[in-house]
Design a protein around this nucleic acid. Structure first.
Length: 509
RNA sequence: GCGCCAUUAGCUCAAUUGGCAGAGCAGCUGACUCUUAAUCAGCGGGUUCUAGGUUCAAGUCCUAGAUGGCGCACCA
């Protein structure tokens, strides 16, 4: 260790006089352990069994039944009961599995029992050695003949019988994970979902790739990027807003079934369904289209639900249920909007007419300068139809202006072959028949550039190397993107910050 | 970005009209060999988010700021 590190450590440990009582007392206990020659943070403890192993092997013991089997177990102290000649302690593992220890004067001796009473607190990691048995009340227990501190906690645990405040949960997720079962479950559920997605793709012979996070042009979606600077090349770089451009380059190069699960960054608002960094799945399938990729997406979601929940019937926090299984509804954007308005809306409906309808319905349409047919249709559709969707629904065939990377519809003029998947009213995924004609793609980028010039700061940027790649010919393909965090939201009914282990929080003053 | 609400002990929360800052858990001391949110007796613990202001007196009222939640706008 360098002297600098030592200085930093000392600076991080303020004089004990200034600490709140409970922190000061725990530091004093640590000092006392050290003074007695006992380590507060030993390099290890002789664990022979995990808590789950003890439960699995001895769970059948009946009240009062004891064995001669000796084990060494460790866990975090989540309950402690100090008595005269008999003490109880409950150890918990990372998954929330618990096991009781009983520490008696007879088995431990006077000195060790007294030390346990004074030195062990809620929150400590504790090692117990002793015989396995069941208490008179039937609780599976270790009858300890030895205890050791495995790691001393210097801060008290929060009350375990009440949830932490929402702020404390995200600021100190490590405490939340100790205290709240739902927080522990989310971590494991998320890992299970990502695993299910990967295994599903592998079964289908998709290759997983990793494409750049740092990009010279942030393209592939309509969003404002984070920017940064690379010193070595003196270059302005952007954190990616989507992997789309690079994944399509991979398809051009012959990686014909490809997917990526990784982070996107968007420099926009944060709320219960938006995080500045979020996990995204994108997949491309050569010789597929938006129909085949829609079927794939449905299977990914339903299989993930089955794999992690054992059912496609999701139970939400308020106790209500939501069915992800079976067939999903299909709506066409123009048809469903027309039906809702009671008047025909087509790709020929003029901007003036759409503005009139928006005005009549009191729908805010945003910056007039950058309004076009597509934005108006989508805004109207969201208010009239999208906001009322609940059951899983594919919304199909979007206006061309807002989808610069999607191919023209095979039969509907002015529309593109794109769907959005709505689950519980929010957009979970999107899918395209990919635009692969490099000449049309260039025209689409030019139209985006005109929108940018008119003041649309989310218009998509032209990527010359992407167009060059397209000129080498990309096979006809279907592509999809799905928010992993949002999939977790759909499967649990929780907000996005609960699905992310360590969401971004503003520093406190 | 705009609006509304909140911020009090380690944690979760009270505090009437502006009038001595409280409870439960947690902590400390003592009792207890079957507790499991133990029980009993006693004791500590506060920059009431921050900075100003009004007032004899401010957790409470006013102004500004910080952080969080909700709604709206934007976005996925």
């Amino acid at each position: 260790m360098t002297t600098e590190n030592s200085a930093a450590e000392n600076a991080a440990t303020p004089p004990t006089d200034d600490l709140p009582e409970q922190l000061r007392i725990r530091r004093e206990k640590r000092e006392r352990l050290l003074a007695q020659g006992t380590e507060a943070y030993p390099v290890g403890v002789p664990v022979t069994h995990a808590i789950t192993e003890v439960r699995a092997t001895y769970g059948h013991l009946e009240a009062g039944q004891e064995t001669d089997d000796v084990v060494g177990v460790a866990g975090r102290v989540v309950f402690i009961r100090i008595g005269g000649k008999l003490c109880f302690v409950t150890l918990q593992d990372g998954e929330g599995n618990r096991l009781q220890g009983m520490l008696s004067l007879a088995a431990l001796g006077e000195e060790a029992l007294a030390a346990f009473k004074t030195d062990v607190d809620l929150g400590d990691h504790l090692f117990l050695h002793g015989r396995v048995g069941a208490s008179r009340r039937g609780e599976l227990s270790i009858f300890a003949d030895e205890w050791r501190m495995a790691a001393k906690a210097l801060r008290p645990l929060p009350v375990l019988h009440k949830d932490l405040s929402e702020e404390a949960r995200v600021r100190q997720r490590y405490v939340d994970l100790i205290a709240r079962p739902a927080a522990r479950d989310m971590v494991r559920l998320r890992a299970g979902v990502v695993r299910s997605l990967r295994e599903n793709f592998h079964r289908r012979s998709f290759l997983e790739v990793e494409t750049p996070m740092l990009q010279t042009i942030a393209s592939g979606a309509s969003a404002r990027p984070f920017s940064t600077h690379m010193n070595a090349y003196d270059l302005e770089l952007f954190l990616r807003i989507a992997p789309e451009i690079f994944l399509k380059k991979a398809v051009v190069g012959g990686v014909e079934k490809v997917f990526e699960i990784n982070r996107n960054f968007r420099n926009e608002g944060a709320d219960s369904s938006h995080s500045p960094e979020f996990a995204m799945l994108e997949a491309y399938e050569a010789y597929g289209d938006y129909n085949t990729i829609g079927a794939l997406t449905k299977d990914l979601v339903q299989t993930a639900a089955q794999d992690v929940l054992g059912t496609t019937l999701v139970t939400l926090p308020d106790g209500s249920e939501y069915e992800l299984g079976g067939e999903w509804a299909n709506l066409r954007m123009y048809d469903s909007l027309s039906e809702s308005l009671g008047e025909e809306i087509t790709s020929d409906t003029s901007v003036e007419e759409l503005e009139k309808i928006a005005g009549r319905l009191d729908v805010e349409v945003g910056n007039k300068k950058i309004l076009n047919h597509g934005k108006l249709v989508e805004t109207l559709w969201e208010h009239r139809v999208g906001d009322h969707l609940s059951a899983p629904t594919f919304v199909r065939d979007f206006p061309v202006e807002t989808s610069p990377l999607t191919r023209d519809h095979r039969s509907e003029k002015g529309q593109v072959e794109k769907w959005d998947l709505y689950i519980r009213g929010f957009e979970l995924a999107t899918g395209y028949s990919e635009l692969v004609d490099p000449v049309v793609q260039r025209q689409r980028f030019e139209a985006q550039a005109r929108m940018a010039a008119a003041g649309d700061d989310e218009a998509m940027l032209l990527d010359e190397d992407f167009l060059t790649a397209m000129e080498f010919a990309m096979p006809p393909s279907g592509g999809m993107g799905m928010g992993i965090d949002r999939l977790l939201m759909a499967l649990t009914g929780q907000g996005i910050r609960e699905t992310i282990l360590f969401p971004l929080v503003k520093p406190q003053a």
